[in-house]
């Protein structure tokens, strides 16, 4: 069950990042090279989506993003801070090694941002329960 939030303002569809809903969580997949305006549009759209859907979490999958400069880094950090204010939590997922190394060299370590290796791990982080048991070896269940 997923639902896309379209753009009512007549902006071209390609300039919008689709926001999908998975239960209590909004899923955003960023891909390729983003325009500054697309990133800013996403920030606005997400705030609206959270309010409208009452979602408790946002997963931003950036595994398809080849470069994060200080502008996009700032947008990601702002989205995280903004969702916190709206009582939701954001997890940034799948950052590539080359991107991570570059951000650190750039001096942008984004300390307040939640991160996860993949969507499964992010779901687990947001919902507090394991999505699949194969992850991280045998899991000890508390008796």
């Amino acid at each position: 069950m997923s639902e896309a939030f379209g753009g009512p303002h007549g902006a071209p569809v390609s300039n919008r990042v689709p926001v999908l809903r998975l239960g209590d969580v909004l899923l955003v997949t960023l891909q390729g090279d983003l325009h500054d305006s697309t990133a800013q549009q996403l920030q606005d759209d997400l705030a609206e989506s959270i309010v409208r859907s009452g979602a408790g979490g946002v997963i931003m999958d950036i595994s398809g993003v080849e470069i994060v400069d200080s502008f996009l880094g700032r947008v990601l950090a702002e989205i995280a801070a903004q969702t916190d204010l709206l009582a939701a939590r954001t997890v940034v997922v799948g950052m590539r090694p080359a991107v991570a190394i570059t951000l650190v060299e750039l001096g942008l370590t984004l300390p307040g941002m939640r991160t996860a290796l993949n969507t499964e791990a992010a779901m687990e982080l947001l919902t507090g329960q394991a999505v699949s048991s194969h992850f991280g070896g045998p899991r000890r269940e508390s008796q």
């Binding site: 799948g94 950052m95 991570a100 951000l103 370590t109 984004l110």
Partner: peptide, 12 residues
């Protein structure tokens, strides 16, 4: 510290 910071950005 850089390595640790980069790993954290990746979610590890």
């Amino acid at each position: 510290m850089k390595t640790v910071a980069a790993a954290r950005l990746m979610g590890a």
